[in-house]
Amino acid sequence: MNGFWVVLIAALRGFLRDRVLHALLGFALLLLVLAPVFSLFSMRQVQELSTTVALSAISLTLLVLAVMLGGFSVWRDVERRYTASVLGLPIPRSSYLLGKFAAVAVVLMSTSIFLGFVSLVSVHIAASFYPPDRSLDLMNFMAAIAACSLKYILLSAFALLFSSLSTSFFLPVFGSLAVYLAGGATQEVVEYVTGPSAQSLSNSLITTVKGLYYLLPNFAAFDLSFQAIYGIPLSVEGLLLTFGYFLVYTSLLLLLACYCLARREFP
């Protein structure tokens, strides 16, 4: 447990001092500040558009963060041989990995809270240009941002799993990007191939798609942006299912990552 905290704090220090991270956050802030300006493109739906821009900006920032931090943090330690000095300490490898993961998760969480707050202000300003029929549903907006950050925390666990497997940064970065793209599509694809419109497809293809559907993460569950933009009521059951799914899926990924890292040699 001790090792976990030590690694977590050291990794957080590293993230906080990372210039690339500062630049990325600066860019996200710029997008959010500009969101009211963008939203003037829409004549009828100023608040809706600014909410969309804000949510997209947060989502994009978290994506880059999850892939970058998740993919690079362990990989860089191995590549620069920091592992020799860190793993020579009495820190179990699992604590090391979980500490790294927790640091990434803390950064993703705090970034989404910070950017979420800024975007609330931004949406408020945009709405004041052209008062909407219905004011922003705060609960839904916060739920959408929270779900979004859970999604990227799950993605960062994938990146960590890949970097505990691979010696190059290719797999962690591009692998997790691929998981991101595939995970966003699985629900629609499985609905298509199991629907009556796909009767012409071969059975083996349908089985493969279903297998992948249950194997790959289902990011559609974390997408509450429509509910946030239009204030459509959220289903409590759905939220609970999504949260439970997040916990179990992430734990499984971390278990697997710990297993792989324990087996890894650092020559």
Binding site: A10, R13, G14, R17, D18, Y82, A84, S85, V86
Partner: peptide, 8 residues
Amino acid sequence: NPVFYDYL
């Protein structure tokens, strides 16, 4: 040839 977290 040790290397340590050089941001610390």
